[in-house]
Amino acid sequence: MPAIRTAPPPHLLGDEAVEQVLGAFYRTPRVGGLDRLAGGGGPFGFDITTACRVHALVTLFGCDAIVESGCHLGDTTEYLARAYPHLPVRACDLDGKRAGFTRARLAGHGNAVVHHGDSGRLLPALLSGLERPLVFLDAHWGPGWPLRAELTALKDVRAVVLVDDFRIGHPRFGYDTYGGEVCGPELVADALPGLGRMFVGDVEADYPLPCLQTGRRSGTGIVVLGLDDTALAAHPWFAKVPLHPCPVLPSWASVPEVSGR
């Protein structure tokens, strides 16, 4: 007797969505690895569970565009253009050569536009005319770290913001530090003092696709601005992080507690 297949809950990925993510993800060349990118490059650092979460965010919030800062050589940008051909994809990079490379790489994708410039200053223009974009903040390695300026530029818009290389409190997942300041919830709480909570990707959740990245993986932080985050709070792929009176990261089941002396 054939197995009875039931439809997944609306907030999870059905077969069609899984095929959409899977096909676009593994058809995207990992060019970033040629530029010594940690983990060998690939969309979202070659972590397909992040791609699953992005798809959930785009679906949950009905995002009308995707904006990316720090496109580097375009691995993630090309994936986004492939996976969401119905959405405009607007990207930028501070490095002119990398922006030019990514622009040429995406010449065949009519929904993608790549700009050269400082993301903190470019974001208002990149967000122009959009009602509820997904914004992927991944601008790193430049002479200055633009994350605080990016968050400030976003504070009065309606958007779903995904911050890469974010501290989630799990030893398997890396994060960035610039000038002694950690890419983590404390920075978000300071930059957006009116925000009561944010989320991080739940790395211990059950995903429909396995991650094949055996090298560096990084945490992701999610900030919902001007939109109702109730559905996200109920989603099994995201964990709540209260920001006040102080940020509290999840207690991961796979990380043993350290007893005090």
Rank of each mutant, 00 (worst) to 15 (best):
T6R: 13
T6S: 05
P8I: 05
P8S: 10
P9V: 03
L12N: 04
A17G: 02
V18M: 12
E19R: 15
A24N: 01
F25Q: 03
R27I: 00
R27G: 11
R27N: 12
P29N: 01
G33D: 07
D35A: 15
D35Y: 12
G39Q: 12
G39L: 09
G39D: 08
P43I: 05
G45E: 06
G45A: 02
I48D: 01
T49F: 00
A51K: 03
C52T: 13
R53H: 00
V54F: 00
V58L: 01
L60H: 04
L60M: 12
L60A: 08
V67Y: 08
C71D: 01
L73N: 02
G74M: 02
D75I: 02
T77C: 06
E78W: 01
E78I: 00
Y79Q: 02
L80P: 04
L87W: 09
P88N: 06
V89S: 02
V89Y: 03
R90K: 14
A91K: 09
A91D: 06
D93F: 11
R98H: 13
A99E: 02
A99D: 02
G100F: 05
F101V: 05
L106E: 02
L106W: 01
G108S: 02
G110M: 00
N111P: 04
N111C: 07
A112H: 06
H116G: 06
G117N: 13
S119N: 10
R121N: 08
R121F: 03
L123W: 11
L123E: 09
L123V: 09
A125N: 05
L126C: 10
G129W: 14
P133T: 08
P133C: 03
L137I: 13
D138M: 10
A139C: 04
H140A: 02
W141H: 15
G144E: 15
G144W: 10
P146A: 10
R148Y: 09
E150G: 04
A153E: 06
A153D: 07
K155G: 00
A159L: 07
V163M: 14
D164K: 11
R167P: 01
I168L: 03
I168M: 04
I168K: 03
G169N: 08
G169P: 05
G169T: 06
H170F: 08
F173L: 10
D176V: 06
Y178I: 08
G180V: 10
E181Q: 15
L187K: 07
L187Y: 08
D190L: 11
D190T: 15
D190K: 15
L192W: 09
L192S: 10
R197E: 15
V200R: 12
G201I: 06
V203T: 12
E204D: 14
A205L: 13
L209P: 05
R216I: 05
S218H: 14
T220W: 01
V223K: 07
V224L: 04
G226V: 09
D228K: 07
D228E: 13
A233L: 08
A234R: 15
A234H: 11
P236K: 08
L243D: 06
C246M: 10
P250I: 11
S251R: 15
W252A: 00
A253C: 01
A253L: 10
V255L: 05
S259T: 12
